[in-house]
Simulated assay, not measured.
Amino acid sequence: MRVVTVLRARGYVVRDLSVDVQEALGSEIRATVVVTGQQVDLLLERLRRLPVVVDARADDL
């Protein structure tokens, strides 16, 4: 849950969080985080620095 720790420690507002745990394939975390356009790149950079993160991306709404 290092991803959740980073989100909490940095004070991000998380609207929705889901975790899909699959033993053989690893886990997937999906979160809706409230950020400005300028903050999204910094958030993605912070997440990608985590060794446990394979992919981090923003979905356009």
Rank of each mutant, 00 (worst) to 15 (best):
R2W: 05
V34Y: 10
M1W: 04
A56N: 00
D16H: 14
V4G: 04
I29S: 03
E45K: 10
R8H: 12
L17Y: 09
V35T: 10
Q22K: 15
R46V: 08
A56K: 01
V19H: 09
R46L: 10
Y12N: 03
L44Y: 03
D59K: 12
R2K: 13
A31W: 03
P51S: 07
T36Q: 05
V52D: 06
R48I: 01
E45M: 04
T32D: 11
R8P: 01
R2Y: 08
R46E: 13
T5R: 14
L44P: 00
R49S: 06
T32F: 02
A9V: 06
L61G: 05
L44I: 09
V53D: 00
A9F: 09
E28C: 09
V40Q: 08
Q38I: 00
D41L: 07
V34F: 07
E45P: 02
D59F: 08
Q39C: 02
Q22S: 14
V19Y: 08
L42N: 07
Y12K: 04
D20Q: 15
V21Q: 14
Y12A: 05
Y12V: 04
M1K: 10
D16V: 02
E28P: 02
D59E: 12
R15V: 11
V6I: 14
E28L: 11
L44R: 01
V52S: 09
R46Y: 07
R15M: 14
R46Q: 12
V52F: 01
T36R: 06
V33A: 04
V54W: 06
D20Y: 10
V54M: 06
S27D: 11
P51G: 02
A31E: 02
A56F: 00
D16M: 08
V33D: 04
A9D: 15
A24E: 12
V35I: 07
R49F: 00
L44C: 02
A58F: 11
G26C: 10
V4M: 13
R30E: 09
S18T: 12
G11T: 13
G11D: 12
E23N: 08
A24M: 09
D16P: 00
M1Y: 05
R49M: 03
A9L: 14
L25E: 12
R2S: 13
S18K: 13
A58T: 05
V19G: 06
R48E: 06
V13L: 15
G37L: 03
G26Q: 07
Q39D: 08
V14P: 09
A24D: 12
T5N: 13
R48W: 00
L50C: 01
L17K: 04
R57F: 13
R46W: 08
D20W: 08
E28R: 15
T36K: 02
V3T: 07
D41C: 02
R2D: 14
V40E: 07
Q39V: 06
V53N: 02
R8Y: 10
V19N: 09
E23L: 14
V34C: 07
V19F: 06
V14Q: 10
V33I: 10
L25H: 10
V4Y: 07
V34P: 02
